[in-house]
Design a protein around this nucleic acid. Sequence first.
DNA 1: CTCCGTGCAAACGATTTGCACTATG
DNA 2: CATAGTGCAAATCGTTTGCACGGAG
Lengths: 135, 135
Amino acid sequence: MQLRMTNQREIILSELKKSRQHLTADELYDRVKKDMPRISLATVYRNLEILSEAGLIGKLEISGRQKRFDYDVSEHDHIYCAICHRVDNLDIDRQGLHAREIKAVKGYRVSGYRLEIVGICPACQKKQEKKEKEK
Amino acid sequence: MQLRMTNQREIILSELKKSRQHLTADELYDRVKKDMPRISLATVYRNLEILSEAGLIGKLEISGRQKRFDYDVSEHDHIYCAICHRVDNLDIDRQGLHAREIKAVKGYRVSGYRLEIVGICPACQKKQEKKEKEK
DNA sequence: CTCCGTGCAAACGATTTGCACTATG
DNA sequence: CATAGTGCAAATCGTTTGCACGGAG
């Protein structure tokens, strides 16, 4: 099962990379459609799955909502906005955690962990302040 | 909007508490149905949502899969099995993380974080060993 | 040429919602 | 007795799949 670099796959990949955001399949679909109007959403889903399996992009399955895909494949954690669900990459030292983690496993064979910081992004903070004033 | 402690709400709550597991809505539905055969799945969903908003149970939204509900409302993290998706509670010291977290926020107002450790649970490890032998 | 990939529509699994009815406080 | 909660069915949302056709290697 070898990978073919089709036109649609190439565009999906480059559109995600150049976005520098953590897009959902349908957000990406909207962008890709501009270059390739007949592409189908199913193709976007299929390719995102394949690309993330191939290690060319990252897959984010954060807190029960829509999957997002990451242009950055290096190991890192995420912060996301509880209001608008925007996601940003974080640079946290992962060393300290490992020691703590390994003690806590209760019989599990640990393969990794996911750390998500939750908060309110700058844009949504501003919106809240505005609402506050209007009262 | 005051809460009424209906029969179904009470049973859902007590069934989750006594399970000492992290059940999904439909797993809980199956259990509750034994005591109350005419209850509907929608009622289970509605009540789990309400109960978690009221702080009587916890809601777990792990890695893009089905929501699970937590009988334990105290602050804690989780470990889950990458194979069978079983979830267990963890006791990790949350102190060390806070300091690191606050440095990393890039304009976000941080409200908390979620740490999930991923691994393979004892039961699934055994299954794998068995398969290995059979080859 | 061989199959992997595509577009389309239909199928799917989890969850939510509109509605008329019920029952709690 | 007001109105939160229920059961049911249908709707919705994100995602996946079956199929016949198209195109990359």
